[in-house]
């Protein structure tokens, strides 16, 4: 094995390990932040600042009865949570954490991400279907519609940055932001991408597939134990993914003043967006399903198209 391979393996291991720590860490972070914004303390008993609550929760999840309902489609039921984990992990392949710290710099990076997040829809649909339960099925239907719809202008919103950077590779895109973060020319694109990202990860306020006040727990009503845990981890990794993509595409990725190393810049920026995700959850109510779809197709889609046209026009104008 040459040094490059070892280095590469180290990066893969590092990314994987980092993500596995981040996911449960986010659970703790979310609970603490939510508490902070709701005048509470949140988990503060187990370990320093209650961080070990995550460990306790994980142990609890592992030891819970791994129940598969007798009426469920067993194979699909087990597969569904695995899909969400796998697709999200795959998406991280293209994320450049710092110069050189990237699993693989695909020249179609963004397309790969879009492909993977489309695959994620399967986990919701299959999970809801296999549960063989009306609430799960309703949740899955909503989830499918929501994810597919928002995927459309999520992709379109990114095209602006692609045009500006003239590349699908994330490393190229970040490098292209050395002069100016794309959030300035592509502000509309950023807003739409972020909204679509929330919908993609079906986080509050767009957690319509789960909507516990109407659908028990939506597509994962029947899940318990570590299978439920996998959905949970998938969701938090999804948040991390969207946050890091936002950072890469619009906020210059690892770029920042030299007093901090690039990786730290990247992590700081990402966590800022994760906190924004949590703040959204803390403050906004859930819209109705039809409102959500209307908002997507009637407002966001035209806006994205206009944004794309203007960007294209500007690019053409500058080149021409």
């Amino acid at each position: 094995m040459d040094e490059a391979t070892i280095n590469h393996l180290l990066i893969v291991g590092g990314v994987l390990g980092g993500l596995l720590i981040v996911a449960p860490g986010l659970i703790w972070l979310e609970r603490r932040l939510l508490a902070l914004w709701q005048d509470r303390y949140g988990p503060n008993r187990a370990g320093p600042f209650g961080v070990l609550i995550v460990l306790a929760d994980t142990i609890k999840l592992f030891f819970k009865e791994d129940w598969i309902p007798p009426f469920a489609d067993k194979v699909v039921f087990v597969m569904a949570p695995a899909i969400v984990m796998i697709t999200v992990f795959f998406s991280f392949v293209i994320i450049p954490f710092a110069p050189g710290i990237i699993v693989t710099d695909l020249n179609i990076g963004i397309l790969f991400f879009l492909a993977m997040s489309s695959m994620g829809a399967y986990s919701i649909i299959l999970g809801g279907w296999a549960s063989n339960n009306k609430y799960s099925l309703l949740g899955a239907m909503r989830g499918a519609a929501q994810m597919i719809s928002y995927e459309v202008f999520m992709g379109l919103a990114l095209m602006g940055t692609v045009l500006l950077a003239n590349s699908f590779s994330l490393v190229d895109i970040i490098e292209a932001q050395r002069g100016m973060w794309f959030v300035i020319p592509q502000f509309v694109g950023f807003v739409i991408f972020f909204i679509a990202g929330i919908a993609e990860t079906h986080r509050l306020p767009f957690d319509i597939p789960e909507a516990e006040s109407e659908l028990v727990a939506g597509f994962h009503s029947e899940y318990s134990g570590m299978k439920f845990g996998m959905f949970f981890v998938g969701e938090y990794l999804g948040i991390t993914l969207i946050s890091s993509l936002t950072v890469c595409l619009f906020f210059g990725g690892w770029l920042g003043p030299d007093f901090l190393p690039p990786l730290v810049w990247f992590v700081l920026k990402t966590f800022a967006f994760i906190a924004l995700f949590i703040l959204l959850r803390a403050s906004l109510p859930r819209p109705r399903y039809d409102q959500l779809m209307e908002f997507g197709w009637k407002i966001l889609l035209p806006l994205t198209l206009i944004n794309l046209m203007i960007t294209a026009g500007v690019v053409l104008m500058r080149e021409g």
Binding site: L36, W37, Q38, D39, R40, Y41, L279, A282, S283
Partner: peptide, 11 residues
């Protein structure tokens, strides 16, 4: 919601 960060805890 964000400003609640600086309120007194109820717990």
């Amino acid at each position: 919601t964000f400003m609640h960060m600086f309120h007194k805890r109820e717990t």
